[in-house]
């Protein structure tokens, strides 16, 4: 990746950081947590795709990564399911 493309990703990441801090000062009630985590997911996706070159990797790394994330979602989802409806 060129320096310019990397710098563009950095600028977007910094802007998202500013957005998430600014939003945290506004009380959105229930929506504060989803917004904060949504922005975090967006930032993580950018870092993975461009800084970690996941966009340019072969199928083995891409699919094993998706597998890991799926496992993480099952772990978080099912645990929270149990806690919330106990």
């Amino acid at each position: 990746m060129s320096y310019k493309a990397l710098a563009a990703v950095l600028v977007v990441l910094l802007l998202l950081t500013v957005v998430t801090v600014a939003v945290s000062y506004v009380n959105l009630g229930f929506f504060n947590v989803p917004v904060a985590l949504g922005v975090a997911c967006l930032k993580v996706t950018l870092v993975l795709l461009f800084f970690m070159h996941l966009k340019y990797e072969g199928p083995i790394i891409v699919f094993s990564f998706i597998g890991t994330v799926t496992f993480l979602i099952i772990m978080i989802g099912f645990t929270f399911w149990d806690v919330a409806f106990r």
């Binding site: 072969g58 790394i61 094993s64 890991t68 496992f71 993480l72 772990m75 645990t79």
Partner: peptide, 30 residues
């Protein structure tokens, strides 16, 4: 490519390690 796959496998274990701690956080937050 093999070297890189090995590194990623290690990173997956790190992701699950911190993922577990985040689950703990979520459960206690609730």
């Amino acid at each position: 490519v093999g070297i890189k796959i090995g590194m990623w496998l290690f990173l997956y274990s790190e992701i699950i390690l911190f993922g577990g701690l985040f689950v703990l956080y979520a459960a206690y937050f609730f």
